[in-house]
Design a binder for these strands. Structure first.
Lengths: 335, 335
DNA sequence: ATGCGTCCCGTGAACGTTCACGTCAGGGGC
DNA sequence: GCCCCTGACGTGAACGTTCACGGGACGCAT
């Protein structure tokens, strides 16, 4: 938040210093540094040598100013500690790198302030923004002006673009599965996002209603520890619960801990299904059945959408700027 | 790797467009946009309004050029999919944000090429570089010229700064613990980094020798699945192994899977100790005893070191540019 | 009237590159 | 001798801001 008062001075020599040292002009130095033609090998060599000695590094600002920007993409992540987000970030970074873009990451997990803080830090530095911005989405678009903002998993609202997931279908499939394995009393553990019901929460509730299921719902903070505590208290109050759908895999891992701690077997006494499909799901015991997302595809979709918005191929806020991706139910041991 | 041929055009209006539209000068627009004094509220309002309508966003390049750079820090991560690295990245991002720096992340896990590729992408964009660069460290410093490079967990070599960990002490403590809980035949599972023995591997071997332990060593790729396979084959060959120290927690999680699959109880039949202390360790069954690192402290140390190198408080390559951090043995269920 | 101070606002210069030219020397063909 | 070409290098301009000034209008006291 508060930048340190002493600002490190960081620029060293300029192109003119190198030119003077080599007894040539700016342009010749440029030619040497960028491996262009129209310079003799001897001069090139000498200039590069001198540049090294003087510690000359071309100013990215001057370069960017004259050459037109290389795209730099802001990535706003709620919490890098939650394994879902690095998985997502990794795919965004990969796809962006392939395009020659670079990615400026900010997370607003801990001491790093709110989502709005992160966007405020990011906005002056980037040409486009991607992130799980939730309620900050419209503030983000305001701060970014005309530059594209692609929001994930949140109704598009003000944002230029939006990538969301078909939780209705996912929830239906997951609940079906729980019924199939014999669950009679099903619960859903939602993430507590400032008291509001999440998109996922609503979809699960609707799917349950549609299937004639009386659902027990509980909320907790999005962490394994909190989920563990929540499930612990939930099964104390509702001893008959034998099927559990969870907001995401991290919280599902916490739920497994709670069930294990209470002496219940999974899936014998209680089947569990998570969402997201992160690698963690294969490491817990029992391995987690989950509504899996193809995270590579999500990252690619987000970056593609940004590209299309940038080039004008897709218009901000238009129908084409909203993508809906599907889950796949991955069956493992827990349900 | 290969930038897309069609480069999105991204800059919109300039300050002059806004000035013309408002019928004022550049400087007045600057004053309005940056909330400076010396402008009437009415004008400020009008200019801001117009700026919004025109989609004007100040060029970060022009700004950077004239104001002197805000520090931007490159962060090179081998694999964001390995939960250790996001934990580390998160702490770097947090500390850097507090300083008002921004962080450009690149990972070289999958399609993203080698570490050298990542550094090549990063070098022109940043004022300093931090990362787990391993063998690329000296190439990185070469590409960065005089700008500071801080390397983690690798002998400093050419790099300006270096943060390493006291594996000798850590290994001693871990092996001690395994002896304490009654292990007679101890194995170490190392990460396979291009066939070479890792710093950790050497430290563990030395500590074992010092304690008179005959160590079985095995290598595998740094992933849970690979570690699982490696341990599986290891216990087939060496049935008597009853204590296992593992390169990191992720691989340790794979090891637990393998032992479980082979019908061995942990810690009853075989005790397991991991390294790193990532949150994952608490989610697996049994919970993982581990040589834990305070990742917040690591991130802070790295960023502090960069700052000191940038300001010249610490000289590149000097003694003060090498920090050694200590592990803490966190006892949980697995040993 | 003169002087002085304040509030708004505008103008030249500078930041460090690259782009699009221009120049100059030498060489070869007729 | 003349022309043109090519290779090696230099020069003005431009990119879009902010900084350090400078200046006019107005109010108020002398």
């Amino acid at each position: 938040m508060t930048p340190s008062s002493r600002e490190p001075r960081i620029r060293r020599a300029t192109i003119l210093d190198v030119a003077a040292a080599a007894g040539v002009s700016r342009q010749t130095v440029t030619r040497a540094m960028n491996d262009m033609t129209g310079i003799s090998p001897a001069t090139r060599e000498r200039v590069q040598q001198l540049a090294g000695e003087l510690g000359y590094t071309p100013s990215r600002f001057a370069k960017g100013l004259v050459q037109g920007a290389r795209v730099s993409l802001g990535l706003a992540i709620p919490d890098l500690t939650n394994p879902y987000f690095p998985a997502f970030a990794s795919s965004v970074v990969e796809v962006a790198s392939q395009r020659g873009w670079n990615v400026v990451v900010d997370d607003f997990g801990h001491g790093s302030g709110s989502g709005l803080d992160a966007v405020t830090r990011l906005a002056p530095q980037v040409d486009a923004l991607v992130g799980y911005l939730g309620a900050c989405s419209s503030d983000a678009q305001a701060l970014m002006g005309r530059r594209p903002v692609v929001v994930l998993d949140y109704p598009s609202g003000q944002a230029a673009g939006c990538i969301s997931f078909d939780y209705s279908r996912g929830a239906r499939i997951a609940l079906e599965r729980l019924r199939e394995v014999g669950c009679r009393q099903i619960a859903y553990l939602d993430s507590d996002q400032e008291g509001r019901v999440t998109t996922r929460g609503r979809a699960v509730a609707d799917a349950a209603a549609g299937a004639g299921i009386r659902l027990t719902v509980r909320q907790s903070v999005d962490s394994a520890a909190a989920a563990r505590a929540a499930v612990q208290s939930m099964i104390e109050q509702h001893a008959g619960i034998d099927g559990l759908l969870v907001f995401n895999d991290l919280m599902a891992a916490g739920a497994l801990k709670a069930l294990h701690g209470a002496g219940r077997t999974v899936p014998g006494d209680c089947a569990v299904i998570g969402m997201d499909g992160i690698p963690l799901g294969e490491l817990v015991t029992p391995e987690l059945t989950t509504l899996s997302l193809d995270l590579r595809a999500v990252g690619r979709a987000a970056v593609d959408l940004v590209d299309n918005l940038l080039t004008g191929t897709v218009e901000a806020g238009s129908e084409g700027a909203v993508l809906v991706l599907q889950h796949k139910l991955v069956l493992r041991q827990s349900a």
